[in-house]
Every structure is written in C-alpha cells, then in structure tokens.
C-alpha cells in the first residue's frame, strides 16, 4: 500500500464512514437535544433567580450572589467532573447526559441571572415610580413595565452568551461524545502512524 493509500485508508475510509455514520448522527442528535435542554432550563433558572433578587431580601440575595459567582468562576469541566464523579459518593449516580445537562445549565443560569439582573437595573427608576404612582403593585410593575424592557436589553448579551460561549462548550463536549463512540472502532486499525 502506498503512503497515500495508507493515509486515505486511515483518515478517509469510506466504508468505515458509512458504517459509523449512524452513530455519529445519533451523537449529533444527542448534542442538539442537550443544547436545547441546557438553553431552556439555564435561561429559565437565571430569570427566576434575577426575579428573586429583585425582591431585595438581603440574606436571599447574598445566597443568590454566592451561587451565581460560584458557577461563573468555576470552569465548566470542573463542575461536570464534580457532578459525574463526585455525586456517586453520596449515592447519586447521574448519567453522562444528566451530568452534562446539569453542569452546563448551572453555568448558563449563573451568567444569565447576571445579564437579566443588569437588564432590570438598566430600566430607569422613573419607570418604577410612574407605574407605582398609578397604583400598580411591585409585581405588576415588574412583569408589565420593567421586565419587557429589561428582556429587550438582555437579548444581545444573552444571545452572545448562549450561542457564543455555551455553544463552544457544547461543541467541545460533542467531541467528547463523538470520540467516545469513535474510540471503539478506531482501535483495531492499529497504533497511530509515527510522525517524524
């Protein structure tokens, strides 16, 4: 076999590609499912925390700030490892899927809480005063006057966060997922050719 043939046989082997295409596609499907799940739950949880924070209950806010800062500062992979390898020691054994979902959703929750909170703070105080002066309650003001404006302000940074950074993380994990399924069939083709 010529060098060229050995190269194409190793890296562009049509037979192997066709055989394992379904596995790869199913990995892609899992990735998309995971991504959607993370985005929906992460952003929903972030919004919920921001709303709780707007109630200005001091001890609760300290807790929220602590949780948010924790998940913003820990590398996502560390969180995954903690959940996947750490939780079994307290008799919880989340699957790889659940571990990935939980850890990345927590990270997105933390970042989106900060983004929503910034959006709420960015709505001028006069909006609160005008609404409250007509008799609207705190909650009505929040849902009907402040949040619609805050959400509009948060769309660009939230999109950036979700697409830009979490997509990168998910795609990184996708490589793990796909290579996890590829490892089983890459082994029989022998040791990798030595470079040099």
């Amino acid at each position: 076999m010529s060098n060229w043939n050995r190269f194409t046989d190793t890296f562009f082997n049509a037979k192997v590609m066709v055989k394992y295409l379904p596995d790869i596609l199913s990995g892609v499907v899992v990735t998309i499912e995971l991504a959607l799940l993370i985005v929906v739950t992460g952003i929903a949880a972030g919004l919920a925390l921001a709303l709780l924070r707007s109630l200005a209950i001091r001890p609760l806010n300290w807790l929220i700030i602590f949780i948010v800062d924790l998940f913003r500062s820990l590398p996502p992979l560390v969180i995954i490892v903690l959940i996947y390898f750490g939780l079994p020691s307290v008799d919880l054994s989340p699957s790889g899927f659940v571990s990935t979902w939980l850890s990345l959703a927590f990270v997105l929750m933390a970042f989106s809480e900060e983004i929503f909170w910034a959006g709420i703070l960015a709505v001028p105080k006069g909006q609160w005063e005008a609404a409250r002066s007509t008799g609207l309650t705190f909650l009505q003001t929040l849902t009907d006057v402040v949040l619609p404006q805050a959400v509009r302000l948060t769309i660009p940074p939230l999109t950036n966060r979700t697409i830009g950074q979490d997509a990168a993380m998910i795609s990184g994990l996708k490589k793990v997922w796909i290579s996890a399924s590829t490892r089983t069939w890459s082994r029989p083709s022998g040791p990798p050719p030595r470079r040099g």
């Binding site: 006069g126 005063e129 005008a130 006057v145």
Partner: peptide, 10 residues
C-alpha cells in the same frame, strides 16, 4: 395622579 419631569412613559 402624578406627572413627572421626565414623563416616564412606558
């Protein structure tokens, strides 16, 4: 009723 300097319309 209250009317503000900066209108504060939604």
């Amino acid at each position: 009723g209250m009317v503000f300097q900066s209108f504060n319309l939604y």
